[in-house]
């Protein structure tokens, strides 16, 4: 029986901008198991990004708590959160966020230099199929390639969890599939717990579980009896 990596209890998040209060999360309960591939689906403003930001140690909750393997993440200080991101979390962003002045290999090295037990940057890039493009700058790579560099950068430190916020949002279908393939491969090879946020319902088919968000709450959770291979889906 897999151990849960995250236990989320009654998580609430309220943003205040001026006089307006926005309830981004209204009491979310959720468990995420080790090695699980999770897809979070839902319309804009449904709260999925807010949850991911709190799980990723980027934001603080207003109420409720999050346990990360026995540690109470919601009680972490700013410094502890930085350390948590550094040691345990990998991020993949919609717009890749690579450092333009560093090559693919160097972008990965950026993270391996500060990690405790990283893989070699070359190995990380080979895992996402970019073994031949090590010394290219981001400006010399296509969008899909850049996103795979971002995945390599995220997994190079052997994180416990990998968070991807709309990783295919800026890519066409064909390129997006290659990125998803890379994510699935990492999940299977390394056993990294992976959570992917998307608007794209089709992507739900490659997950172990799909969590549907609506109005700051978990509307329902669906388990896929069989996971589709990424190559089989399109949009």
């Amino acid at each position: 029986m897999p151990q849960p990596v995250f236990i989320v209890e009654a998580l609430t998040k309220v943003y205040r901008t001026g006089d307006v209060e926005v309830h981004a999360l209204r009491g979310v309960d959720l468990e995420i198991d080790a090695g699980e591939f999770l897809v979070l689906l839902g319309p804009s403003g449904s709260g999925k990004s807010t949850l991911l930001n709190i799980l990723g140690g980027l934001d603080h909750a207003t109420a409720g708590r999050v346990l990360f393997r026995d540690a109470e993440l919601t009680a972490f200080s700013e410094r502890q959160l930085t350390l948590y991101r550094r040691e345990h979390v990998g991020f993949v962003f919609q717009f890749y966020n690579l450092v333009p002045s560093l090559t693919a290999r160097e972008n990965v090295s950026l993270v391996t230099e500060i990690a405790t037990d990283p893989m070699r940057p070359e190995e990380a890039l080979e895992r996402v199929g970019l073994g031949a493009r090590l010394d290219h700058f981001p400006a010399q790579l296509s969008g899909g390639e850049q996103q795979r560099v971002a995945i390599a950068r995220a997994i190079a430190k052997r994180p416990k969890v990998l968070f991807c916020d709309e990783p295919t949002g800026a890519l066409d279908s064909k390129t997006g599939v290659r990125v998803l393939e890379a994510l699935v491969k990492v999940n299977q090879d390394l056993g990294t717990t992976t959570a992917v946020i998307t608007h794209n319902v089709a992507i739900g088919q490659i997950a172990d579980r799909v969590v549907y968000f609506a109005d700051g709450q978990v509307a329902r959770v669906e388990e896929n009896a069989t996971r589709q291979v990424a190559a089989a889906i399109s949009w």
């Binding site: 930085t82 350390l83 962003f93 966020n97 450092v99 500060i114």
Partner: peptide
């Protein structure tokens, strides 16, 4: 700014 914030997300400290 974006580049630096990305690095903060990746676990770089403020000082770094």
């Amino acid at each position: 700014g974006r580049e630096l914030a990305s690095l903060r997300v990746l676990g770089f400290t403020r000082a770094e």
